[in-house]
Design a protein around this nucleic acid. Structure first.
Lengths: 134, 134
DNA sequence: AGGCTGTATTGACATCCTTCAATGTCGAGC
DNA sequence: GCTCGACATTGAAGGATGTCAATACAGCCT
């Protein structure tokens, strides 16, 4: 009778961001979040993302990205695909070339998830002596 | 393909945190950052981290974490080790038990890295043809 | 000391990930 | 239509990662 099980990951109101630091994640949220962090967990993809995000004009052509890496073109394309599947970047083909740009909603959401609320008092590590076993 | 380097927008790095979204990361920074994101790129570790971070009192005993997972005790211990090596949590043995707590400096730094500076006007990703990425 | 409990480490195995060569697809231009 | 250039996809090889059983280690308690 309680309908508050699903639709937890849905893009609702400010509740859109699961609270990583203030409440335990359920398995579904953790799975979805892990996909995005996994996409960020590679130095090549981080460099690609930073190149795309810092580009004046907001867009980068693949042909401007590839020569910065000691990787084959298919490998760079593969990494771009993973970033796209994680919702971190968008892309569009224009003529012969394909352009990529940052999707700031995703990085904003991650930043929010990793931001500890101000009201949360962090106690010193070594303090509690009285066990609070669950 | 122009051989020019990617144009950088925004101010230089403050020095403390690599600027993921405003300047291209160099390989060294990308490598270091990727390690932390890789530690976050697993649903088990995300749940562990959220359990530790959201714990009132700031600390959690391993014996309170393990029963929440369908995993063997060594596996949970392994994930905790990776979170610790990434600088996300700290730990201390007290008697028989080992306690873990969040190291907020690391999550704060990640949040800062993922936060787009306010002065940065992001052009709209795409006006027309906002079709989903193929 | 000896046994017991909680946690970490080791070794092995299955799975996933990164990478490249080869090939396919899309669009432009002759 | 045909060819060429830019980018994506496929398939395979090697390395990294997640997991468990077995074992080791560190403190308590008789």
């Amino acid at each position: 009778m309680s309908k508050q099980e699903l639709e937890v990951v849905g893009p609702d109101v400010e509740g859109c961001c699961p609270a990583l630091l203030t409440a335990p994640l359920d398995e579904e949220q953790a799975e979805a979040l892990a996909k995005v962090f996994k996409a960020l967990g590679d130095p090549i993809r981080l460099r690609l993302l930073s190149m795309i995000a810092s580009r004046a004009g907001g867009e980068v052509c693949v042909c401007d990205l590839t020569p910065h890496f000691d990787l084959s073109q298919p490998t760079v394309s593969h990494h771009l695909k993973l970033l796209r599947q994680a919702g971190l970047i968008g892309c569009e083909r224009r003529g012969t070339w394909v352009y990529y740009w940052l999707l700031p909603e995703t990085t904003d959401q991650l930043a929010g998830i990793l931001t500890r609320p101000a009201g949360q008092p962090l106690p010193e590590p070594v303090d509690v002596a009285s066990g609070a076993a669950s």
